[in-house]
Nucleic acid binder design. Structure first.
Lengths: 235, 235
DNA sequence: ACAGGCGAAACTTTATACAATCTTCGCCTG
DNA sequence: CAGGCGAAGATTGTATAAAGTTTCGCCTGT
């Protein structure tokens, strides 16, 4: 009686149909296959995933709540186009949250987790060697998410998922050079600090890692958005 | 051409129908008129707000994303019942974010904002004098939201809105005594620090304020949930 | 008397149809 | 020939109806 057999915390990413749509579109955006400003027609997506507009709409609303899609009334859904101001907010939030997350992760180290991290680093290196930019971008984000999962703090994890998704768009829009994703070496350093359970070092490395990513961005006046986008689109 | 007349950032809480439903239900939960575990039938809510189930469903999904409603597959939506573990996470996140928020708020002080804060404190005192517990709970949360708005950081604001809503449920479930909301005096002290633009003092006061709120909670083993809820419900 | 299973009712989920709105393209006018 | 008006097409917002699932009561059998 006291302990009900009902699953208390259902998996956040259940394998229902709307989640498939959401994750599919999210992946497309995070891998830079869908560029900022792209219109996401409901029929269009529905046809791709073989789903009715009802489900597509649900998925798009969730993505809008996560900040990677903008829904304009009577006009439809578009891939979000963060402004430089948005970018600064996102990275300020990450600088606040991620050091704390990696701190907590240090306390949760286990052979299983270290193995997982190690395998991830290998994947990242491989993608970088292949020159697979899409995979690099995706894996780079997943590294940060992995640490958040490791921290065991579901709220931080939820927040960070949002921030990572937005960061991906920001990096696409505002990166100066075509640097090979955000340095894989930094990730290795963070893992090393985690392995040694050196919380202070982990915090410091995470912070400087984020600083370096942001330093490579070109966050000028908002008016430059249009130009920058046109450049990215190859116009 | 460069500057399009389209409204760049639409108001987050537009006055459309789904927002009215969302805000109505949120208010009901935050004012403790809807208790944790309460079933939120779609027909029921739809009839109250004179809306179709389509709109109600949209609103409920948004609330689920905010963490104050749980949607169980094929069973419906229920007011969330945070566990003690959830509560600890929420307050840990608030202790991380809110000092930073109030720090930023110190830089945004203006006569208009100080007036707004002052009027809010007056409202809080009045509600407390009236012994209006519902208004007190609501206003207490709104104070923290006000400071987040003042900080001008939209991401922090979004995060904090979630945390505040969950905190309200947590306080209802786990508060020891029926203390008169979280101390209005603390709020006054925070406002004083903001007025003096004393960022360090503001951070410190916010932190101790949150500590005190959490200290008044009774966060024991998860199994106590049921008993506690039964107690609150007067069963 | 009680345990187990069957069945109906209520609800959520999904799909489809209708209405409102915006965009676009053509045409007319100055 | 440029600019604006207007109607057709397309797309989204909303409501309603069909389908599937869960739950609860009741009945039967032991």
């Amino acid at each position: 009686m006291a302990a009900k057999p009902r699953p208390k915390s259902d998996a956040p990413d259940a394998s229902d149909r709307v989640s498939r749509i959401r994750e599919g579109v999210t992946a497309a955006i995070l891998e830079h296959r869908l560029l900022p400003g792209t219109k996401l027609g409901e029929d269009e997506i529905g046809e791709i995933y073989g789903a009715s507009r009802t489900l597509v709409r649900t998925a798009l609303q969730q993505l809008a709540h996560e900040g990677i899609v903008n829904i304009e009334k009577n006009r439809g859904a578009f891939v979000a186009r963060p402004t430089p101001a948005d970018a600064r907010e996102v990275f300020e939030a990450r600088r606040l949250i991620e050091p704390t997350i990696v701190d907590r992760a240090c306390e949760a180290v286990s052979p299983a987790w270290l193995d997982r991290l190690q395998r991830h680093l290998a994947e990242e290196r491989e993608a970088e060697l292949r020159g697979d930019a899409r995979a690099s971008v995706r894996l780079s984000g997943e590294f940060h998410r992995l640490i958040a999962e490791m921290s065991g703090h579901s709220i931080y994890l939820g927040f960070l998922k949002e921030l990572i998704a937005r960061s991906s768009l920001i990096i696409l829009l505002y990166r100066r050079h075509d640097t090979p994703a955000c340095g894989t070496d930094h990730h290795a350093g963070i893992v090393a600090a985690i392995r040694k359970r050196d919380r202070e070092a982990a915090r410091g490395q995470m912070l400087s890692h984020l600083d370096e990513i942001e330093a490579e961005l070109f966050l000028k006046d908002p008016a430059a958005d249009e130009l920058r986008l046109a450049d990215v689109l190859g116009a």
